[in-house]
Each structure stands twice: as structure tokens, then as C-alpha cells.
């Protein structure tokens, strides 16, 4: 399981590296949405490992609330670009 957590953290580093580079705003949005779901999943796996379900509850709620703010932001950016 520890190997799994390290692997997940490595996978999380990929979109973070994408965000740190200069790129277009849409690339950045995609990378941020990827970060959001990856962090929530890491939270739940850590919760299972440490047997602490409160942490998992936060992960489950942030997964089910979703990145609705990013969704609104994408619509707003489209209107601004037009």
C-alpha cells in the first residue's frame, strides 16, 4: 500500500508540472481538474490505510461536490474570450 501511495503522489506530480510550465489557459484548467480528483482519491486511500474514516468522509464529499467552481469558471472564460 505504501508503494501505491508513492505511485499516486508521482502521478499527482505530472499535472503539477504541467501547471508550473507556461501553457494555455485551457491546458491549465484540465491539469487543475486532474489535480482535484487525484487529491481526493489520495485522501481516501490514506484514510483506508490509517483506518480513519473522517479523512475519507472529506474525500468522498469533495468528490461528490465535484469541481463545480471550475465548471463555472470555464463557462465564464468562454464568454470573456468571445
Amino acid at each position: 500500500m505504501t508503494v501505491l501511495i508513492w505511485g499516486m503522489l508521482l502521478a499527482l506530480l505530472i499535472p503539477i508540472a504541467v501547471v508550473c510550465r507556461p501553457c494555455s489557459v485551457w491546458d491549465r484548467m484540465a491539469a487543475f481538474s486532474s489535480i482535484a480528483s487525484k487529491v481526493a482519491l489520495i485522501m481516501m486511500v490514506v484514510a483506508v490505510i490509517r483506518d480513519d474514516w473522517m479523512l475519507g468522509l472529506v474525500g468522498a464529499i469533495s468528490l461528490s461536490a465535484g469541481n463545480s467552481g471550475m465548471l463555472l469558471l470555464a463557462n465564464l472564460l468562454r464568454e470573456v474570450e468571445r
Partner: peptide, 24 residues
């Protein structure tokens, strides 16, 4: 709660992919 997370994950990520594609 895991079922709720699964449902939310699938629906939100799919809709967000559609919104990103159509907005970009």
C-alpha cells in the same frame, strides 16, 4: 458514501470534460 463518491466522480468528471471541450 463510496457509492456516492463513485456516482459523483463519474458524473462530474464526464460533464467537466464536455464543458472543457466545448468551451475551448
Amino acid at each position: 458514501l463510496l457509492a456516492l463518491a463513485l456516482l459523483g466522480l463519474i458524473v462530474w468528471n464526464t460533464i467537466f470534460g464536455y464543458v472543457l471541450a466545448s468551451c475551448s
